[in-house]
Amino acid sequence: MIIGVPAETKPGETRIGLAPAGVHALVARGHAVAVEAGAGRRAGIGDDALREAGASLVDADEAWGADLVVKVKEPQSGELRRLGPGMLFTFLHLAADPALADALCAARTTAVSYDTVRLDDGTLPLLAPMSEIAGRLSVLAGAHHLLSPYGGRGVLLGGVPGVPGARVVVIGAGVAGAQAVAQAVGLGADVTVLDVSLPALRRLDARHGGRIRTMTSTGYAVAEAVAGADLVIGAVLVPGREAPRVVTRAMVDSMASGGVLVDIAIDQGGCIEGSVPTTHDDPVRAVGDALVYSVANMPAAVGVTATLALTQATLPYVLRLADAGAAAFDADPALAHGVNVRDGRIVHPAVAQALGAVRGDA
């Protein structure tokens, strides 16, 4: 099979779909890998390294024309004309992007999304490494924008002796939320975490030995926590569906002037009312007197780390698709969960329901 790896075109994106180790593994199995020239440069991977691993360096048309296209981010508007009837393996987040869903159906692309590949225990093995990175980055980004020169309240996340640290509220105790909590605790902040799952809260409480506050997530509890926060991190995920708006505009307005919110869920539409996708070049928007950071590809800020983390997670699945094609969906239930579009229609139930709701069909 020919595997194509185009350069990413989303603003600020630095990652590449396959690192040299992935290229080498595919070529060793008898597959051909066609990488768009320059695709790895921003992840610290030069063309020579990819060529030495066995890749052919090609233009964008040839990379997109492969049997299996491996990317990082969803196709951008300028790439929709390149979609075809082959397989596409990437992050898609279709619940928040009806236009892309329609384009994939029209092109009869078999589209497999990293974020819905799901194991029997419910975990998301391909989303997890990027969620870990986004969770850690969310605290660093929030701490940066809390500084006065960047419009924040002028609060130091960890405080100093005699002065308490910033009050950090994390909504969601999944992979991203857990990493945000760990980062904030490590930096000395005063941390509260909310989730609808008591077992998840118990795990975090045990992990941090009583150094955090935990609260069951209700509208009342979220409003109370946000009102007293310096930094709010929204890390809510419903796989395949749009993120629920758990932080309302009224809650944002209740924060002290210069408060910061980070919306990790922006790829799925966002969990903070008023947040819109932003870029690394222009990452925050003012919502009332608060700042909302909602970069839609947060891990691209650490493209070297993120590329290696993503490739080590996706490579086993890329190999299965390359070896077996669509038959891999029958052999691997986790991959089957990843299929969002096939034969011109949306086949993932949660994605179909979410898009139907957006269009008023549900």
Rank of each mutant, 00 (worst) to 15 (best):
E273K: 00
A265E: 00
R203D: 13
T311F: 05
A49K: 07
L261D: 04
P75A: 06
G17S: 12
D361N: 04
S138G: 03
P239M: 11
L187Y: 01
G162D: 07
H24V: 01
A301I: 02
L88S: 09
A37H: 06
S56N: 05
A7Y: 00
L319H: 02
G172F: 08
A327R: 14
D97G: 01
V236S: 07
A19Y: 09
L308D: 11
T314Y: 03
D361I: 05
D361Q: 14
V112E: 02
F91L: 15
A189W: 06
V236C: 09
V27W: 05
V35P: 03
M130L: 15
T14G: 14
A128R: 15
S197H: 03
P349G: 12
G17F: 09
M215F: 02
H24G: 02
A128Y: 04
L92M: 09
Y150G: 00
P11S: 10
L321H: 05
V70H: 02
Y114G: 11
A111L: 10
A225L: 08
L50A: 00
I45S: 05
L26W: 04
T305V: 09
E62I: 13
A173P: 02
L201V: 06
P129Q: 11
H93L: 12
H93F: 05
L18T: 06
A225I: 10
P244T: 04
E242L: 14
V191Q: 08
Q353W: 03
E242A: 11
A223W: 03
G38H: 04
G240F: 10
A200D: 13
L194Y: 03
P239I: 11
H93N: 09
G78A: 14
L237T: 12
R359Q: 12
Y114I: 11
H337T: 14
L92W: 07
A286M: 09
A95V: 01
L83H: 10
V69E: 10
P20S: 07
G186T: 07
L140Q: 15
G174K: 12
L157Q: 03
V69H: 07
L157E: 04
G219K: 09
H280F: 11
Y293L: 14
A143G: 07
A128D: 14
G344A: 12
A200T: 04
I16E: 08
A32P: 00
R203K: 14
L104S: 03
R118F: 03
A354F: 05
